[in-house]
Simulated scan of single mutants.
Amino acid sequence: MEFCENCGKVLIPKNNKVKCSCGYEKKLSSEDIETQYTFKGEAIPENEVIVKTDNNVTLPTKKITCYKCGGKKGYWWTVQTRSADEAPTYFIRCAKCGNTWRQSN
C-alpha cells in the first residue's frame, strides 16, 4: 500500500501509477502492483452438508405443555418486538407438532 509523501493519504493505483489530490504522483512498476495491490483470498474447498431430517433444530429447549398436541418439549428464542427499554418477546415452538406461540413478560 502506498501513502502520499506530502499529505499521508492512501493512494490507489490507476493506470500503473498513483496520484494524490495534493499533486503527488508516482509511477508504479508491475512488481510494486503485484506485491502491494494484489490480494489473494484463502481457497477453502466446498464442504457438502447432508441433511437427513427436518428435525435439526439448534435452538435451546425447555419443558412445556403444548396446548394443541400436549407435547412436553419446546424450542424457544427471543425477539425485541417493542422498544429497547421494554422486555423482549419470547417465542416457543412445540418440538412435536411445530405449533408456535409467543409469551410477553
Rank of each mutant, 00 (worst) to 15 (best):
M1L: 12
E2K: 07
F3S: 09
F3P: 00
G8H: 04
I12S: 10
I12T: 14
I12Y: 12
P13S: 08
P13Y: 05
N15E: 14
N16M: 13
C20P: 10
S21Q: 06
S21A: 03
C22G: 02
G23D: 06
G23H: 06
K26S: 02
K26Q: 11
K26W: 01
K27E: 08
L28T: 04
E34L: 10
E34F: 12
T35N: 15
Q36T: 06
Q36H: 11
Y37N: 11
Y37G: 05
Y37V: 04
Y37K: 05
T38V: 15
T38D: 05
F39S: 15
G41C: 09
G41N: 15
P45E: 15
E46R: 11
E48V: 14
V49A: 10
V49I: 15
V49M: 12
I50P: 01
I50S: 09
V51D: 00
V51T: 08
K52A: 07
T53Y: 03
T53V: 03
T53N: 11
D54G: 15
D54S: 12
N55S: 12
N56F: 11
V57R: 04
V57G: 00
L59T: 01
P60Y: 09
P60T: 11
T61Q: 13
T61V: 14
K62Y: 02
K62V: 07
I64L: 14
I64K: 07
T65H: 10
T65Y: 09
C66T: 03
K68D: 09
G71T: 04
K72S: 13
K73H: 01
G74T: 07
G74L: 10
G74N: 02
W77C: 07
V79H: 12
V79K: 15
V79E: 15
Q80P: 01
Q80W: 00
Q80I: 00
T81H: 10
T81I: 08
T81Y: 07
R82G: 02
R82K: 14
R82D: 05
S83T: 08
A84G: 03
A84W: 00
A84N: 05
E86S: 12
Y90M: 15
I92G: 01
I92D: 01
R93F: 04
A95L: 13
K96P: 00
C97V: 07
C97W: 07
C97L: 08
C97K: 02
G98R: 06
G98H: 11
N99I: 06
T100H: 01
T100P: 02
W101K: 02
R102S: 15
R102D: 13
Q103P: 00
S104D: 08
